[in-house]
């Protein structure tokens, strides 16, 4: 299958601190790549470098087409209704037909179970509902690659599921996705491939089965063990 995203020897520095060093990988069309790693390992920065929110000091990022991104929180435009949030970029950036965009927005809202909220403002929605709208807002631009940056990290536990279900649904539609997450069960269920990042470098790039059941590096083992709880003897 064709490669849709290719990252070559990417290096990102903030002044003296190197956040990402010599990171290389590629993503095929329809592939779901999950990026895991301890806090501060550079996962989010990697996504931000891919969609151009951060400049890079060395290396190359090539994408066939556009990216869409969903952030951790508070990204909907608070002065616009759900529908206005969804329609702004298609109308202003892509100059699409208003009727067509509106129809697509309504269909997508239906798909994520939020048809009844189309004229509500973000402040009238729960955290999980806001994130579902944010996902639709990225989708409606028809990006070739979707980037998810810890989209459930700021949510109350009972709302995590509804958001992850939407992303799982997208995987069944063969969307190409890069997902940064701390939800290990979800990562395992959705990933075609897992990248384990630590200290700004890729430590493992493998299948979810191998990563979760038989990680090769000591660091990955240690990282995974932080998600396990055993009662002390």
């Amino acid at each position: 299958m064709e490669e849709i995203l290719k990252v070559e020897k990417l290096t990102k520095r903030y002044e003296d601190i190197t956040v990402l060093e010599n990171v290389s990988f590629s993503v095929k069309k329809g592939e779901v790549l999950v990026i895991v790693g301890p806090s501060g390992c550079g996962k989010s920065t990697l996504l931000r470098c891919i969609n151009g929110l951060e400049d890079i000091q060395d290396g190359k990022v090539s994408i066939e087409g556009k990216t869409g991104m969903v952030f951790q929180s508070y990204e909907l435009f608070p002065h616009m209704t759900v529908l206005q949030n969804l329609m702004l970029a298609p109308l202003k950036v892509q100059k699409r037909d208003k009727g067509e965009v509106m129809k697509e927005a309504e269909q997508l809202l239906e798909r994520v179970g939020l048809s009844s909220k189309k004229n509500n403002y973000p402040r009238q929605l729960s955290g999980g509902q806001k994130q579902r709208v944010a996902i639709v807002r990225a989708l409606i631009m028809h990006p070739e690659v979707l980037l998810f940056d810890e989209v459930t990290a700021a949510l109350d536990p009972e709302m995590v599921r509804e958001v992850l279900d939407v992303i799982l649904d997208l995987a069944t539609q063969h969307k190409t996705m890069l997902i940064v997450t701390h939800e290990m069960n979800f990562a395992r269920a959705i990933a075609d491939r897992v990248i384990f990042l630590e200290g700004g470098s890729i430590m493992e790039d493998t299948t979810p089965e191998e990563f979760f059941d038989a990680p090769r590096s000591e660091r990955a083992k240690r990282f995974l063990s932080t998600f396990e709880y055993k009662k002390k003897e």
Partner: peptide
């Protein structure tokens, strides 16, 4: 994040100011 999500949606700087 308001600036960043605008940019991620492809809005130009001017559009970000005008609409967001």
């Amino acid at each position: 994040i308001q600036y960043e999500s605008s940019r991620a949606l492809g809005l130009s700087r001017l559009q970000t100011y005008i609409y967001v």
